[in-house]
Structure formats: structure tokens, C-alpha cells
Write a protein that binds this DNA or RNA. Structure first.
Length: 536
RNA sequence: GUUCACAUAGCUCAACUGGAUAGAGCACUUCCCUCCGAAGGAAGAGGUUGUAGGUUCAAGUCCUAUUGUGAACACCA
């Protein structure tokens, strides 16, 4: 690694100035004239040395020696810029082609694990756009962390117990009975979506009136199973494969909830008042206390949720991630607080909040609501814009942008959608490589020596550090930005350079080069769940 | 009212979490296919990073105040 060489040489230079154990930041300047690499070390040290940053920089420069570096410049206010030999960029072509699907991966997460819980929509309806965004984020993050060596579990928490499932059962039952000519009201917090009506209609078609006297539990279970199957199917289509679907019913069944609450009391974080049991969350970073056991003796939703997180910890996960909509932000302090109340370190839970997606259609905001059935579902989205576009689109932005999803725009199959731009680069390369069969290995690259090629080569070289950065910061959109930039640098090169020429050796070099670009594009796109086509 | 996010070009978003002249796409104005895919490329125009202070060698980024937008504030989940 060339960065390591420069850092080592810098450390040696610093040692001669009697400076030790300093963290050196090496960055890639935006402007070419500021070198291939740069460091701000002199600016950082100036204060403690009580010296002018430029003086410090020059002293370091005078003591700096590194074979790979051809030139060192000091620039105001005190940056040190390094210009290096380009060989490492050309050598990287062979590295990429050799590593193939592994190029860009790292082992920083070796021996560490992550449990990422996301989507986790109640099985009382179908998935909507918010789930699509959270799903794209969670799954891409999982892919990136795996690529960085972590052991990652993608988990979906199924709320298959509680009031909402009762309402689901009642809603289906009501629709069914109404079809039998027994007009029945859907309960106040019931579900009115077309998928509910469909379930009832299918029941009527298959069983006529024989289910008339079935108990509510029958409709609850039936509805949960059908809707969960629908959810699982669309998620698979969306290229998300959950490792585990955890059932709330099971968790509650195997957890000792009374004991858990006793432990909270013993630790001084739960108390009884007005006939209910309360979590003293105000002492744990929340703005007020919350009820755990209602005065009718039943648990609030919080209790199974806490038990679920404890269950994950007991299964051996040392890093938990929850992906939630911002409408749940108040819930974070309660959940982390309750972990602390039970003696766990709340920092093992990292909650990622995503801003809700606003749906716009024909310039008018459409309110999303599962209940009214007016929402655009993930299935519809996939049908209309395609899986690649949907995954790419949601992976483009950081989670904290309040993004508008313009359905009309997303439907357009034009270059307004950047996924086409990136796919196009991949298809162009594939066409060339598929037409040229006799690619030979190159030991020493002699012909590739122009700035446009070096721009692409630098992008290729950057990929592993982009992956590492995206993993450490849990920001998949850095990958999406990267892949766009790589495609862009290729398109520029393509417009100026003819790859297949009379010179066979030169052509061979470029075929290896193109192959490396294709490998990197594919690896990067895979991390965000996009599969580029060889032809468009 | 309290709490949490967010505010960058006309529009949608970046900016390697404190670095050098804030970058892309769309839309707008020009130009480039005899030639591996023009779903592409080149050039132009577009900005007091909501506002006002502060911290420091350095602020879109951190702190305070303020304005605007969204969300949450049940013995519902």
C-alpha cells in the first residue's frame, strides 16, 4: 500500500524532529495540482510546537525520504503534498482481475458480528415506500459489512401478537361475514386495504359459508400467514434475503417477562404507581416515564420489544442495529434506557432513523396510509420502475434527507435516472470485452499513459477504502456515489479513447484495464443490490 | 408547549464527518457520431451553504440564538 509507505516515511521524518506517536491523516486532494496525496500534519502540530505551520511543514519536508514519492511540496497554509509514481495504479489492474468478486473487500470486521433488524412491518398489510427505503438501507449495509469481514445477520421482527393482529382478524372476519350477507363493521382501528378484501373474497370463493362460526383466532392466524408470505415474496424480489424472521409470539413465550421486570425494579428503574408498573425512563435519558404493565395486568408493547432485544443479545450478538422511521424517534431513548435498566450497555444498540419518504404524484403530495389503501406499495414500485432503479434510487441518498419520491419521474426510463448511466457503462464495457476473446495477462503495463486513464485507475484504486469508510460509518450511499463517479470517469475515457487498435499489445493492456473496471463496477453495484445488465 | 431530525444552484441531491477555488444530475444556451453502444462526451450560465453571532490556523460541517419544514409526545402498537 502506497499510503502506508508515505505514512511510515512521514513518521521517520517526524522522529528526526523528536515527534512521536502522532496520528497521520493522509487525504486525496480534490485538485490535481495539490498532489496525489496530502497531509495536514503540520497544521495540527503547529500549535503544540509553537511554530508557524509553514515552517513545520518545511522541516518535515526536509527530513522526508520515500522512494515512491517523486516530489514533495509545501502549500499554504501548511499542507504537505506528495506526488507519486503511477506504477501502483497500473499494477492494481492485475490485482483487481486476480481478486475478482473479492476486490474491494477487507477484513476489518473479522471476528465481530452484527445483527441488523429492519423493515419489520406488521403483517397487517403490504409493504410501502418507507419499508422500501429502510429495506434498501438495511440490506445494503448488511452487504457492505459482510464485505468488510463482519458476521452479519439480517433479521425481521414479526409483530404477530397484540392488538393489531386482533384487529386484523376482526377486519378479515368482518369482510367475510359481509360477503355472506351478514353486514359487519370493521373495528375502529381495523384494516381497510384491498389486500384484506382480497383475503376475504378468496375465503368466500373456497369455503362459501362454512367458516361462518370459526373463532377469531382462525382469522388472525390465517391473515398473518397470508400477509407475511406476501411480504416475504416481495422482499425476495427486492433482493433482500432475511436470515431470520423472529416471531413476537415465540419471544414472549420463551422469555420470562415478570422476571425481567423484577430485575428492572431491583435495579431501581421500575416502580408501581396508580395500579400500573412504570419504567423510570426519565432517569435514563427519556423525557418521561412509561408504563410497562397496565392496571388491567396486561403488558404494553414496550415489554415484548425489550425482551426481543435482550433475546438478540443472548443469542450472542455484540452489535445491534435497528432501522426505524423517524416517527419512532421517541422510542429510542426508552429502548436504550431499558437495556441500561437491565444492566446492559445501551451502546451495543445503534438505531438508524430514516426520514420518511414523501410520495409525490403529478406534483401533488399523496398521503401514505396503510389503512386507507391509497399507499403505493413496494410491489407496485418494483413493477413500475424495476428492481435496479428502486434499489439504486433509495441507496443514493443519506438516510437523513427527507426525500420526495416522484412516481412519475421514477417511471421514466431516461437518463434522468442515474441507474441507467451506470448500467450503460457496464454494458459498453461488456460489449467490448465480449467481442475480444484473446485477452492475455500483462506483466508490465507500457501503453496506458494518459490522464483520462489515470483518472479511472485512481477511482479503481480508491474502491477498497470507500468500502471501508462506508462500513465504518454505516453509510451505503457512499458506495452509490462512488459507483456513479467511477462510471462517469469511464464514460469520459470512452468518448476519447479507442481501445481496440492495430497494436495488439496495447489492445491487450486495455482489455485487462476494462476487465478491471467491469469487476469493480459489478462489485460496487452488488453492495447496493443492483445487478447490471450486459446489454440494455 | 416540550423533544428529535432536516435546511446547500430554479429542481433532486453530494461534499471522504473540521481542510485548499462547495461539486454532480435534471432543466436552460452552444458544440461533438464515416469510427468498439450519442442511454455518451465537451463548453457556458447558475451559490452570501435559511438568518445572526461564536469556537480556530481552517466552518456547509462543531457551539449558541433565531426562522422555516417534517415527525413524535396514551395505562395504542
Amino acid at each position: 500500500m502506497i499510503e502506508e509507505s508515505i505514512k511510515n516515511s512521514l513518521n521517520e521524518a517526524l522522529a528526526t524532529l523528536d515527534i512521536h506517536d502522532t496520528i497521520i491523516e493522509l487525504t486525496k486532494p480534490q485538485k490535481k495540482e495539490n498532489g496525489d496525496f496530502a497531509t495536514n500534519i503540520a497544521l495540527k502540530l503547529a500549535k503544540s510546537l509553537q511554530d508557524n505551520p509553514l515552517n513545520v511543514a518545511n522541516k518535515i519536508k526536509n527530513n522526508f525520504k520515500c522512494e515512491l514519492v517523486t516530489n514533495v511540496e509545501v502549500a499554504p497554509p501548511g499542507f504537505i503534498n506528495f506526488f507519486v509514481k503511477k506504477d501502483y495504479l497500473l499494477d492494481n489492474i492485475n490485482t483487481i482481475n486476480k481478486e475478482g468478486a473479492n476486490y474491494g473487500s477487507n477484513t476489518s470486521g473479522k471476528g465481530l458480528n452484527y445483527n441488523i433488524e429492519f423493515v419489520s412491518a406488521n403483517p397487517t398489510g403490504i409493504l410501502h415506500l418507507g419499508n422500501a427505503r429502510g429495506g434498501a438501507y438495511g440490506d445494503s449495509l448488511a452487504r457492505i459489512l459482510r464485505f468488510s469481514g463482519y458476521d452479519v445477520t439480517e433479521e425481521y421482527y414479526v409483530n404477530d401478537a397484540g392488538v393489531q393482529i386482533t384487529n386484523l382478524g376482526l377486519s378479515i372476519q368482518a369482510r367475510y361475514l359481509t360477503l355472506l350477507g351478514i353486514p359487519t363493521e370493521i373495528p375502529e382501528n381495523g384494516y381497510h386495504g384491498p389486500e384484506i378484501t382480497e383475503i376475504a373474497e378468496n375465503l368466500f370463493k373456497e369455503h362459501k359459508d362454512t367458516l361462518k362460526d370459526k373463532e377469531l383466532d382462525y382469522f388472525k392466524e390465517l391473515g398473518t400467514n397470508i400477509l407475511l408470505d406476501k411480504i416475504k415474496k416481495v422482499l425476495r424480489d427486492y433482493r433482500i434475503n432475511f436470515d431470520i424472521y423472529s416471531s413476537e409470539k415465540n419471544i414472549v413465550g420463551k422469555s420470562n417477562l415478570p422476571k425481567m421486570i423484577e430485575t428492572m425494579k431491583d435495579n431501581g428503574y421500575a416502580y408501581e404507581s396508580e395500579g400500573a408498573t412504570w419504567l423510570k425512563s426519565s432517569a435514563l435519558g427519556d423525557d418521561k416515564d412509561h408504563v410497562l404493565i397496565k392496571n388491567d395486568g396486561t403488558y404494553t408493547y414496550l415489554v415484548p420489544d425489550i425482551a426481543y432485544h435482550i433475546d438478540k443479545i443472548k443469542r450472542g450478538y455484540t452489535n445491534l442495529i435497528d432501522v426505524l422511521g423517524t416517527d419512532h424517534h421517541g422510542y429510542v431513548a426508552r429502548l436504550k434506557g431499558s437495556l441500561k435498566a437491565l444492566g446492559y450497555n445501551p451502546d451495543i444498540l445503534d438505531v438508524k432513523l430514516l426520514q420518511l419518504v414523501r410520495l409525490v404524484k403529478d406534483g401533488v403530495e399523496v398521503k401514505m396510509s396503510k389503512r386507507t389503501g391509497n399507499s403505493v406499495s413496494l410491489q407496485e414500485l418494483i413493477d413500475e420502475v424495476g428492481i435496479n432503479a428502486a434499489r439504486y434510487f433509495f441507496s443514493m441518498h443519506s438516510l437523513d434527507t427527507q426525500m420526495d419520491f416522484d412516481l412519475e419521474l421514477a417511471k421514466k426510463k431516461s437518463n434522468e435516472n442515474p441507474v441507467y448511466y451506470v448500467s450503460y457503462a457496464y454494458a459498453r464495457i461488456s460489449t467490448i470485452l465480449n467481442s475480444y476473446k484473446n485477452i492475455k495477462n500483462i506483466n508490465k503495463y507500457l501503453y496506458i499513459n494518459d490522464n483520462l486513464s489515470y483518472n479511472v485507475l485512481e477511482k479503481l484504486y480508491e474502491f477498497p477504502s470507500v468500502v471501508l469508510n462506508a462500513a465504518n460509518k454505516k453509510l451505503p450511499h457512499l458506495i452509490t456515489n462512488y459507483v456513479y463517479e467511477l462510471a462517469s470517469s469511464f464514460h469520459v475515457l470512452y468518448s476519447k479513447k479507442r481501445f481496440i487498435t492495430e497494436n495488439e499489445d496495447e489492445t491487450n493492456e486495455y482489455m485487462n484495464f476494462l476487465s478491471a473496471i467491469r469487476v469493480t463496477l459489478k462489485n460496487a453495484l452488488d453492495l447496493i443490490g443492483v445487478i447490471p445488465p450486459e446489454r440494455m
